[in-house]
């Protein structure tokens, strides 16, 4: 089976966007950059939140949906709750990858970490000078940047929120069952 088309077909089948390392990596860097978590003085607290923020950054619908809900002070429709539940499942299933990808980013020197307030979490911040300028200034990630700005508007303390509070604010209080502790 050396045929190139067969090889490509295999690759295509194996490709899962939401678990793609590059996908996760660029979203994490955008989140840290937009939230200005760029030094040990201003770290992103608890890296586990990043796993879920990947979806909020990349999805064209999630952040606008929550922003709209907050603006109109209305309840989410059943369909919206479903969308949110799918996002939660996606974030939850990706959390191990996130830890590893943060590790890769550390290796590359794009980010720095320190142990967080609890055993299992890390405080993360971007080393902007190490990240290629072409990436930081690229127009390609405008959508992600806008989305994260909306998220920051929805919850101004997104950077410092504890993990349980984050889950409550973005999922549980909208009716999504959370199995995470």
């Amino acid at each position: 089976m050396t045929d190139a088309s067969t090889e490509l077909a295999k690759k295509r089948i194996m490709f899962i966007k939401s678990e793609d390392f590059n996908f996760i990596a660029y979203n994490i860097l955008v989140v840290l950059d937009v939230l200005k978590c760029d030094s040990s003085v201003r770290p992103f607290k608890d890296h586990r939140k990043l796993s879920f923020l990947v979806d909020f950054a990349s999805s064209p619908v999630l952040a606008p949906m929550l922003e709209r809900q907050l603006r109109l002070k209305s309840d989410l429709s059943r369909r919206d709750v479903h969308t949110l539940a799918v996002a939660y499942a996606s974030g939850a299933s990706r959390k191990h990858f996130v830890a590893r990808i943060v590790n890769s980013l550390i290796t590359k020197g794009f980010v720095e970490v320190r142990k967080g307030e609890h055993d299992l979490d890390l405080d993360v911040w971007i080393k902007r000078e190490k990240v290629p300028e072409t990436f930081i200034s690229s127009d390609l990630y405008l959508l992600e940047r806008e989305n994260i700005k909306k998220v920051a508007a929805i919850s101004s303390h997104i950077r410092t929120l504890t993990f349980p509070t984050f889950l409550d604010r973005f999922f549980e209080r909208h009716g999504v069952t959370v199995w995470h502790s």
Binding site: F21, A25, Y26, L105, K108, F110, P132
Partner: peptide, 10 residues
């Protein structure tokens, strides 16, 4: 992703 791959070479 392609762009990230090329720029970050992770």
């Amino acid at each position: 992703m392609m762009f990230a791959h090329e720029e970050l070479k992770l």
